[in-house]
Amino acid sequence: MKKLISVLLVLCMFLGLANVALADKFPSKPIQIICPVKAGGDTDRNTRQLALALEKVLGVSVVTVNVNGGATVMGMEQALDAEPDGYTLIINGTDMFVPNMMGTTDINLSSFKTIGIPLIDNTTVLVAHKDSGYADLKDLVEKSAAQPDSIEYGGKIGATNQICGIAMNKEWGSAFRFQDVGNNAAKITALLGRQTDVINLSYSLALDYFKTGEFQALCLLGSEANELIPDAKLASEFGYKNVDFSKFFWVGVNPDTPDEIVDILADALAKAAQDPEFLAYLKENFLTPACMLKEEAQAYAQKFYEDTMEIYKDEFIAAQ
């Protein structure tokens, strides 16, 4: 038995040696990007495309690792628990603020060092079914204000969806009744089946239904127009205040990661964001290229949170 154990030990050491010769140059082994939602959605798709572009720049494989659960908190925790060696990145978006707003976690944007923001998803549109017969946004808002709670806004409870509903009612004077219908797929189903009246949605997720005319994009929930989606006008064109629920795509890393490594990663991200194939992908999906790095990106994300989400915090908590 003893002999056996020593044989095993020797074998393990031998295998260990093969992997020791690294650590002088970053990156020298595969990098993981934690995607804090499950595989298959638009966030996951963006992550995988970014991974491909980063791979070309860094010369090592960049692998997407899905860690789902806890409204992106499980993934963020895993990134904070990982070695601060720059080999574990995390991506997130506006969703990262919600658990903190609700007080269910201490983790926030400032818990990480920001690498950068390579793209902005300015494609969130307010959608109604064509059979509902709303002429335009103004018509919808007026009908809703005339008969409070008669028009249902479907979304996911305890998520940015709900904050968006609060923001619209407050800024536009509408009186939508919020109803939980579930995630993106469920929202599309509910709208198709005419079970709910309006939803907010990323444009590319229901492209077919916009093409057939079944879905009607009433307005773009952003601060700037998206020239790739000409049929979705800003709320300001109807004389309302713009309610911005665009989504930035943020890449961060454990806060104890050395600055030299953060610099290398930020450089790589800047190059990856310019990769022609990555840009083509963005265009195809109506996404806006961006290239904000480190402190600039962190400040942008923080300001975005303060301007578009934090101001509705009290109403949001009260609605729970």
Binding site: G69, A71, V98, I157, G158, Q320
Partner: peptide, 10 residues
């Protein structure tokens, strides 16, 4: 156990 789907609290 976990997040309640209809309130987003654990």
């Amino acid at each position: 156990v976990g997040i309640d789907q209809l309130s987003a609290y654990t």
